[in-house]
Design a binder for these strands. Structure first.
Lengths: 202, 202
DNA sequence: GGAAAATTTGAGCAACGCTCAAAATTTTTG
DNA sequence: CAAAAATTTTGAGCGTTGCTCAAATTTTCC
């Protein structure tokens, strides 16, 4: 590869990492092209040589966040040999903890909205799909009779419900819930949801 | 009241209604002061005579949305004389339907974020608290032994879980779920959550 | 080394929320 | 009712924003 292209690649990575740091510290709204350019040492116009858009940059940062989240959920899924129920609780708690520890980056995943005409790139959609798979496996163990499609729907429902509790729980707007209390609420409700689903399944 | 103040009040109401229409049609990001000023027939600077901030204006619009949502949930709560379980399902479905029918206004409730130093006005916090009360009553009927505080926590958990399903369900980013399917998922999971909570309570 | 190709640059554009001296209007006063 | 005083409205303008593009710079190639 030519020297110019090497430098370009290096700068692109610097840019994404700088953007990640900036979102983490100042929130998605605090991400500014001029600050980014100063941070990585180039002209502000140069940002658009590395990335077509701020949208793309945000998606790149989001991709990194999703992969780290994926790792956190994987760790929770394979820790110890728990029952499927308790594995699901662990995953939900891991999701909550990740969101709390990576608050602004996690928020950015859901705050960001593309303009109506632009569509999400393929790799970004792929990233998001992967998340449900951690829930899918324990669910499949609990409901062996259900079809792949049914399990997928249930997995998304469970994920969404936990996401809602975390989202509103970490929101300062509504009553600020202390993190330990939130973890407890999640544990209670996930157990209840699974119990309820099993009871109805028989 | 003086003629000047009357006109001011009228304009302020016009402004809020215009803002509501603009958010509903173009989303929160499409709310622009210059367009608002043109719409209600005044100078762009005049917007700041009626409202201190765009933040305040958004909060005013949010307040109206919350009140309409409150009405929708009230209607669902008092329709027929259903069991507490089925009332909770009805409320959840009503929430889902309201969000779908008022997509951008409903989104604005959660997308909007104040700058860190500014705090929410009292009336806005009050508005938000009211929402849980619809869930509280059927829950109290189901769990007569629980304290007010415990019921409040459970109410918020249930609300948050349903909110999460609606939020991710109506999001175009993830797999777009057809509305009837979403309503069905919500019904299933709310019933499961309640069943599970009751089973653990005995 | 020097011409050609590719890349980087930063001034500049349009649009944004918001401000504030000046203009217009309303209210008070004589 | 007219002039003075108080109040309200106005819109040009400020500082920022994401993004563009002709010009300057650097790299590539022979």
């Amino acid at each position: 590869m030519s020297k110019a292209l090497e430098r370009r690649e290096k700068l692109r990575i610097d840019l994404i990492l700088a953007a990640e740091r900036m979102v983490a510290s100042r929130g998605l709204a605090g991400l500014k092209t001029r600050d980014l350019a100063r941070e990585i040492g180039c002209a502000n116009g140069a940002v658009y040589n590395l990335v077509t858009d701020l949208d793309e940059l945000i998606l790149r940062v989001g991709s990194r966040t999703l992969h780290r989240l994926d790792e956190a959920l994987s760790a929770a899924q394979s820790a110890g040999d728990l029952s499927p129920q308790e594995t699901l609780v662990r995953i939900a708690i891991a999701y909550c903890d990740f969101a709390a520890e990576n608050l602004e980056l996690w928020r950015a995943l859901f705050e960001h909205r593309m303009e109506a005409d632009k569509t999400l790139p393929e790799w970004s959609i792929e990233d998001q799909m992967q998340l449900f798979r951690h829930i899918y496996q324990p669910l499949a163990a609990l409901f062996p009779k259900r079809s792949r499609e049914e399990l997928g729907i249930t997995a998304r429902s469970l994920f969404s419900a936990v996401h809602g509790m975390v989202a509103l729980g970490l929101e300062q707007k509504l009553v600020a819930v202390p993190l330990p209390a939130l973890r407890k609420e999640i544990t209670v409700l996930v157990r209840a949801m699974i119990d309820g689903l099993i009871a109805r399944a028989v």
